[in-house]
């Protein structure tokens, strides 16, 4: 599995932007805000949040509208909207590339792209210095249909390599997307396909491990060799890199 890759502020004009690749999808996000809100969308004591998801080809369909709704609800709980009353926070997510298996997956499925969208949205908000209550990390989990025991869940499957595998799971097993906040609590769980409650629980735990890492993972702990970085840890390093880049001028003084 190629590790998710994120860049902050690739664009010049928006207040914040980010590109992120995960599960074979590459997405660019841009945020503008807080800006003036239209009268009809104005909320007296908090910010209105607008999410636009734009597919790589074609114009938006009901599928994108649904994803937008899921994202708006999720982000409303992450953004400190009460700090920006009567304004608009406008987020645009443009899908730049999709894995070649994208078209062979069941067309109604919006799950494979969802983790990449969520993580792009979060990185974009960070880059745009929008006040947030916590961190956010999302991951895709595929649970193959168990004919016998011993088949493991696949966390963050790579559609390019295990394309047919993911496809098979999408048809026969269950696909799940989980998102966790900074305290390791699930803030989003979307599932589809054929699965039981044990499958779901196992998938959730596996996802939590990837997103948040071990419970006592503190920023000061040295990286254990061989151990995978949690996504929150990755985010921290990303911000650190950005801070160093911004503070280059200090180097000489």
């Amino acid at each position: 599995m190629p590790a998710p890759k994120t860049t902050l502020n690739p664009l010049r004009r928006p207040d914040g932007s980010a590109t992120h690749s995960q599960n074979g999808y590459t997405i660019i996000g841009a945020v503008n805000g807080p800006i003036e809100v239209q009268r009809r969308d104005e909320i007296p004591d908090e910010a209105a949040i607008e999410v636009n998801v734009r597919p790589a080809t074609g114009v938006g369909s009901p599928k994108e509208r649904r994803i937008e709704q899921v994202l708006t609800t999720l982000l409303r709980n992450i953004i400190l909207t009460h700090d920006y009353p009567r304004t608009l926070i406008q987020l645009t997510l443009q899908i730049l590339s999709t894995p070649s298996t994208h078209s062979t997956l069941p067309s109604a499925s919006s799950l494979p792209v969802l983790p990449a969208l969520i993580n792009t949205a979060y990185a974009t908000l960070l880059a745009g210095s929008i006040r947030l209550s916590t961190t956010l990390a999302a991951v895709l989990v595929a649970v193959p249909k168990r004919f016998g025991k011993g088949e493991a869940v696949i966390v963050d499957p790579d559609p390019e390599e295990g394309g047919s595998e993911l496809e098979a799971v999408a048809r026969k097993g269950g696909l799940h997307v989980f998102a966790f906040d900074g305290r390791g609590e699930a803030v989003l769980a979307e599932s589809e396909g054929d699965f039981g409650i044990e499958d779901w629980e196992e998938a959730c735990e596996a996802a939590r491990g990837v997103c948040c890492g071990l419970q006592d993972e503190s920023p000061d702990v040295m990286e254990v060799e061989g151990a995978k970085r949690s996504m929150v840890r990755g985010l921290r390093e990303l911000v650190k890199g950005e801070v160093e880049k911004e503070g280059r001028w200090r180097g000489e003084g």
């Binding site: 805000g33 807080p34 400190l80 880059a127 210095s129 006040r131 911000v239 801070v243």
Partner: peptide
């Protein structure tokens, strides 16, 4: 509420996060 390095000023008994992004 934002990302960035934490700065403190013991004299003023103040702390803040330095952040150059956004609006």
């Amino acid at each position: 509420a934002l990302s960035g390095p934490l700065h403190t000023d013991p004299r003023k008994n103040a702390l803040w996060i330095e952040n150059n992004g956004g609006r």
